[in-house]
Each structure stands twice: as C-alpha cells, then as structure tokens.
Design a protein around this nucleic acid. Sequence first.
DNA 1: TAAAAAATACCGACCGCTCGTTAGATTTTT
DNA 2: AAAAATCTAACGAGCGGTCGGTATTTTTTA
Lengths: 205, 205
Amino acid sequence: MKEKFILKQEQLFNTAAALFAEKGYHGTSINDLAQAMGLQKGSLYHYFKSKEELLFMLLDEYISAALLEIEKICALNVDAVEKLRLFMLFYSSFYAGDRDRLVLLINDIDKLSEALRLKIIEKERRYTKALTDIFSQLQAAGIMKKIPPAVAAFAFFGMVHYTCKWFQQDGPVSAEALGEMFLEIFTNGVFVNPVTGGDVNAGEN
Amino acid sequence: MKEKFILKQEQLFNTAAALFAEKGYHGTSINDLAQAMGLQKGSLYHYFKSKEELLFMLLDEYISAALLEIEKICALNVDAVEKLRLFMLFYSSFYAGDRDRLVLLINDIDKLSEALRLKIIEKERRYTKALTDIFSQLQAAGIMKKIPPAVAAFAFFGMVHYTCKWFQQDGPVSAEALGEMFLEIFTNGVFVNPVTGGDVNAGEN
DNA sequence: TAAAAAATACCGACCGCTCGTTAGATTTTT
DNA sequence: AAAAATCTAACGAGCGGTCGGTATTTTTTA
C-alpha cells in the first residue's frame, strides 16, 4: 500500500502551505514544520528531498490544476464574451478558494532558484496569454475598449490574487458570489450609468 | 552637521528597500545589506537598532506619505464622483511609482511583530475606510451598483497593489496613464456597451 | 498461519554554516 | 580634543541537511 505515504505527504503539503503562508518560506524552518507534524525534522526528508523542492511541488501542483481547467475553458466552442465570463468566474473562485496556496504563489515564487521558478512562470505565462487572447478577440469585435490587453489581464489578476489579503471563505460573501462581482466590475464597471470625464476611448469602434 | 547622517540613512533605506523587495525580508541578511553599502555589518547599527525596526521604518514612512495625501483628497469640497476620481488617480500613480516599497508592503508586513504590524495596519485601515465611505456615498446617491463597498475597495486595491508584480515604470505605459485605465475599468468597465447576463443588479435605484 | 525477510517510517545526534546582535577598539571628521 | 563613523571579533542560536541506526509495518516464504 503506497496509500499511506501519499496520504501523509498530502497532509504534510497542507501543513507546509499553511505555515509558509503564515510566516513566509524563509521564516518557516524545517523544524517548525516537523513540530507541526509531530515528527523530528530528519524524518521529513522521506517526503521531499529539499525545502526548495517542497515549495516547488506545492506551487506546481496548484498552478497546474488551474491551468488544466483554464485550457478546457479556452477550448470550448463559445463566443469570446462567454469565454471571458467562464474564465473570470472559474479563476476567481479557484484562487479565492485556497488562500494558503495563493499566498505562496504571490509571495514566495521568487524564493525558488532560477530553474524551478521558470517552470512555474512558464505556466503562469500560458494563462496570461489565454486571457489576453480573449481580450484581443473582444477588441477586434469592437466589444471592448482599447485598453492594452496585458494591462487589462493584470488588472484582473490583481483583483483576484489580492483576495488572499482580505477575503474570508467563511465570511458573508462566497467565492462564487465574489467571482460574479469581479466579472461585473470588470466588464461593466461599478457605476449604474457610464460617467464620462476621464474616458480613455469609450464608445468608439 | 546632522545632514550627513540623515543623507546616509536615506541611502541605506533605499538600498534596504531594494534588497528586501528582491530577496524578501528573511532572505536578506544584515551582511548583504552591509556589503551593498560598502560597510561592515556591525557598522549598520549606527543607523537602526534592529532589523525589524528597519523594516518598520521603511513601511511606516511610505504608508504615512500616502495617507497624508489621501486625507487631503477626502477633505476637498467636491462631489463623490470627483473624489473617487482623484483618489484612484493618486493611489494608482503613488503605488505604481515606488515598486520596492510596494513589494514590502504586500509581502513583508507579516514579518513584523504584532505591535509594530498593528501600527501599519491601522493606517491601512484608515484609507480603506476612506474609499469605502466614498462608495457608500455613491450608492446612496444611486450612482453606483449595490456591490459591497468593502469588496469594491479591495478589488481596486488589488488592481493597484498587484502592479508591483508586472508593471515597469520605464515601459510603454506611464503610472499616470495606468491610473486612468484603472479608473475607467473600475467605473465603467472594459466593455463599450454594457453586456448583461450575470449582472449583479445593474440598472436599479 | 507463522516465521523470516524486506521495505518503510522515524529518531536523534551531528555537520558546517549563517544569522542578528553586541562591545570595545580604531579611524575619520569636526 | 571631542564626537561621529566605522571596524573587528566574537557570541549564542538556529539554519538546512546528513547519516547510522531502530522501530514498525508489509510482503514473502515455508
């Protein structure tokens, strides 16, 4: 039975994610982690070969799961408006749904060495491209304002990623409801009727 | 002449901010900092009494400057729409304008001990309240959709704070232009014409 | 089914190194 | 000569990681 190993490793991963998220990667010692698991630190090295590899596995597992779902959405045969809706709803609830991992992805990715970091960044790049492509399509169709797609994409990622600093899963707003709000803010804005003044280029095309 | 002291301390602060931003608070040693300043590490203790106090001073100086300006804006005798505009433009260009300090504020605030962290958080709380108050006024006036003001505020902060992960000051988009885009996205959305479907409660009031 | 063998999980001491911090001596500036 | 800035050397603690050895569990064998 390999099950036992996998099970305990998973428990270890979750504990590590929680500790890293709380005190930072460098701020959490292997000993801290061992204590939280009720083990001696030497014992942990049966589950990973180095602290850095542990961090990498946490991040990679997480981002790969997101990427899989996102590429499914992008492969759907629906128009760009609907694709954007699905993307944003999924992305919001996915990332607002696992605070610990999100904190790691935001704070500690730079603590990886070049080689490992690039593997993570490459995957990030893929779904950044997915979203900018959707924006480009929307602009080509005259539906979206001429805001640089990359700026729009990072503005959205910012809204979502920052949830790890304030959003509580057990609070009055669910992760799904939050996604709906982000979608609405991002596509139509918070104002009931458009208010002009500093408009970039609203209404053309 | 106290000038020399202040000047060198300022230089030290900027160096520390850059290193902390790059490698993290725990990832940067006093020795790293000393080398970057061309001094021995013991010598640095003429300029601060502990590493933690150094971090605190960096954060406090920065957030206090922002808060001062924000409270000026809130005290202006203009309507809420204009107040929101001024708030967002200032906030965007201020935070997108000093990447190092912003990274610290996002990543390393939790490395402070309880007592010092609370001092920073209290100031953050004040300008979070400033923005939520503006939203409440806009909603009372029927100008803004019924999105919880706190959610809207954090959505905006997220867009801005996340710039430290991608925005380059010397790139094709200036910090001011970025502020205009964020304002437009946030108030009117990226779509040219409102697209319904998942609307929270657009059009009422 | 029971003993033997193999694989797994864990311990605890230890390595070399770096950490933040301190204190006293020394150099540089005023 | 006084004051400010810097250096040197050392401290105790903690770091990530290693290793030989020991329980414990699982698998194989008879």
